[in-house]
């Protein structure tokens, strides 16, 4: 059985339709890259899957582990194993990273029927994962993402992912704003989480990230639809030719 099945998904924000019929099937263990020009709907797709209310699904369906994903609240999706690494992680002054993550982990564990972690076990888990992400432990006691550099925020997202161990991870432009060293660390963290039971959707504008996180499939999104799908070589092709071909193609379709 597939892990995620998206069928003819349409979504809008305000009066503007952004997703215009997405079809995508993801099986356990697969890594799918979603590429496309700015404004093609990549981030919208990521947010819709995570349950952001800003976007209204107008038609289509999404089946996750046999359930109607669109009927679930964002927190229930997270508890069911969906994780979104944000393009712009949110700063929450006044809530410590540690408290936040412990609350998140224990809710997720509880809903999976696993015993909640006590402070000691939580700390040792967290330390191990921080090491993986080459993160400074003092970040734990700081408020969530507050005053973090761009790179620290992105690492923090993957660190949270490592702690929460999702079944479906959606990485929304996790590479944006990272220098090459940070990119390697982040990609290393992601690769360490690759698992036959864990699937990933990697949303990116650039092929660069896919040198480090090698996808099984690449899809090109343009004007709210997947216009081309292929293997990892498609990403290289895009690097050569850019998105111009697809934009033209889309325009041509629009004129018919």
């Amino acid at each position: 059985m597939s892990l995620l099945e998206i069928k003819d998904l349409h979504a809008k924000v305000g009066e503007r339709e952004i997703l215009r019929g997405i079809d995508l099937t993801i099986n356990p263990g697969e890594v799918h890259a979603i590429m496309g020009p700015n404004g093609s709907g990549k981030s919208t797709l990521a947010q819709v899957l995570a349950g952001r209310e800003l976007y209204v699904v107008t038609s289509g369906e999404v089946i996750y582990e046999g359930q109607d994903l669109l009927a679930m609240s964002p927190e229930d999706r997270a508890r069911a194993g969906i994780f979104l690494a944000f393009q712009y992680p949110v700063e929450i002054p006044g809530v410590s990273n540690m408290y936040f993550l412990k609350a998140a982990l224990n809710t997720v564990r509880k809903s999976r029927g696993i015993e909640e972690l006590d402070a000691f076990d939580f700390l040792s888990l967290v330390k191990e994962k921080m090491k993986l992400m080459e993160m400074d432990q003092t970040l734990l006691n700081r408020p969530v993402n507050t005053g973090f550099s761009g790179g620290e925020k992105k690492r923090n997202e993957i660190f949270q992912m490592a702690v929460l161990e999702p079944r479906l991870a959606i990485l929304d432009e996790t590479d944006s704003g990272l220098d090459i060293d940070a990119l390697r660390t982040v990609a290393g963290g992601v690769n360490a989480l690759r698992d036959p039971e864990r699937s990933m959707i990697v949303v990116t504008h650039y092929q660069r990230l896919l040198n480090y996180i090698v996808p099984d499939f690449v899809h090109v999104l343009s004007e709210g639809r997947i216009v081309k799908s292929g293997g990892k070589e498609l990403a290289l092709e895009l690097e050569e030719s850019g998105y111009s071909g697809f934009e033209d193609e889309e325009e041509a379709v629009g004129k018919v």
């Binding site: 349950g51 809710t107 809903s111 929460l164």
Partner: peptide, 14 residues
């Protein structure tokens, strides 16, 4: 609203 969604997306109830 962004902060609320961020927390919910990590499993914390509304």
């Amino acid at each position: 609203a962004e902060s609320l969604f961020y927390m919910q997306s990590r499993g914390i109830g509304k």
